[in-house]
Design a protein around this nucleic acid. Structure first.
Lengths: 147, 147
DNA sequence: ATAATTCCTATTAATATGATAGAATTAGTA
DNA sequence: TACTAATTCTATCATATTAATAGGAATTAT
């Protein structure tokens, strides 16, 4: 149904949390899970791909936890989503042409390809730093609303 | 995995076929299935939603078949995909806010919403007429290649 | 009547998604 | 050294979605 799965969605929130605590030492998965109301066990599965993509560092043992591997302004949402969801193209034939014989003559494939590029661009234009700022603005306006 | 399912993808090809034969009387599902190498039985399931969306007309019985309900230039790819896949937003919380309590404060939701709008715009900008023209250009260039 | 076609409903198979559990490993600290 | 807090690894399961198949009912032109 053209959805980003919970992998990508939870992953984005996980990375935002890490960005919010950037520079303050390792963050516990347990705490992120609690604050964001996500299953800790499920979040666990997201870390290996994020580490493999060079977005997250981890330290084990007591006082361990997770930290961003780069500054928030250096990490785009595209990297995060792609690390977790794989290629962003909306049809397999776009990134794996040999799944279909019709590739050369297929008009719809050309369109799916363009669409995938748009999606990529859109996600690429958002960094974790942007998201942190959005979060801070939200905090303020939601205070105003609450008066 | 952020894919358009076969519903939407097959549906796009089905509609392109109908556009290619626009004005030449009803087209048989059997023929479309054969030309496009798609399961006729599966295609059958795509017609009810396309009819409900006012994109396709059908006539039953001998010499029946399917025709576009509007001219190819009046039908956008967004209409087709949306009729088959439902809302194009990449997360459910975008179009059904009450699935999540965090909606008001959620930064990622704002981003998914923007992304969904981009996807919609991109698909909206392509009509069946455009696709027919793309197809014709393909035919020519592929002839050249084949010499 | 008959043949050709859409239409409808049920069922199944395959795949992807989401979640849980438990043991193994690592590192700090008393 | 022993203890504790944390990540890491692997296996498993439940559920939902997607894709496909099948059979028959209804409709229409000839």
């Amino acid at each position: 149904m053209m959805r980003i799965s919970t992998k990508g969605r939870y992953g984005a929130r996980l990375m935002l949390e890490l960005a919010l605590y950037y520079g303050k030492g390792p963050v516990l998965l347990k705490d992120i899970a609690k604050r964001e109301e996500m299953s800790e066990g499920y979040l666990e599965h997201l870390l290996p791909p994020l580490k493999a993509a060079g977005l997250v560092n981890s330290s084990r043992g007591a006082h361990g936890g997770y930290t961003l591997a780069k500054t928030p302004s250096e990490i785009t949402l595209r990297e995060v989503v792609q690390a977790l969801e794989g290629p962003l193209s909306p049809a397999e034939c776009v990134h794996t042409p040999n799944v279909c014989q019709r590739v050369r003559s297929c008009v719809t494939r050309d369109i799916w390809k363009k669409l995938g590029e748009k999606i990529s661009q859109t996600l690429e234009s958002v960094t974790l730093k942007d998201m942190v700022e959005m979060q801070k603005n939200k905090g303020e306006t939601s205070l105003i609303y609450n008066i």
